[in-house]
């Protein structure tokens, strides 16, 4: 039995807080569950909070990237919030840049960014940022 990360639905968005040790299988299960829920609820945004995560290796980085790519195919935006400085430095040194994932400092900033991304106009947002998509 694989531990599963709860996914909360709030309006058009899905909220995920990764609190457990992000085991490989837990990560893959999350990717699967999220994709299912996006389709079931026609969600337009996913907010992933990783503030209590202790490390992100290249495998987890790839899973997070895949979540963003899959969501995008389903017309849904993903914002990653709360990354710890130590993790950001380690990921940069490792060479993971999470191209295509939007990031924000806090859950609050992340929600605002999601709202902006979800609104058709896609105007320049002041809080949080969106990493340029090639």
């Amino acid at each position: 039995m694989v531990e599963r990360i709860p996914i909360l639905k709030i309006g058009e968005t899905l909220l995920v807080t990764i609190q457990v040790d992000f085991h490989d299988r837990v990560a893959l299960a999350l990717q699967e569950d999220l994709t299912d829920k996006i389709v079931t609820h026609s969600s337009k945004g996913v907010l992933i909070d990783i503030s209590s995560l202790e490390m992100v290796d290249s495998f987890m980085g790839r899973v997070l990237g895949n979540i963003a790519k899959t969501s995008r195919l389903l017309d849904c935006h993903t914002v990653l919030v709360g990354m710890q400085p130590a993790i950001a430095i380690t990921m940069t040194e490792l060479g993971i840049s999470l191209q295509g994932i939007s990031t924000a400092l806090t859950a609050e900033d992340g929600m605002e960014l999601l709202k902006a991304l979800m609104s058709k106009k896609q105007k320049r947002v002041s809080h949080g940022r969106q990493i340029a998509r090639k």
Binding site: M55, V56, D57, F59, P85, I87, I89, T90, L94
Partner: peptide
Amino acid sequence: LVNQTKIITAASELAR
């Protein structure tokens, strides 16, 4: 903390 994270991450990469 940064070095701890680096070591644990490197261990994770190599274990995989």
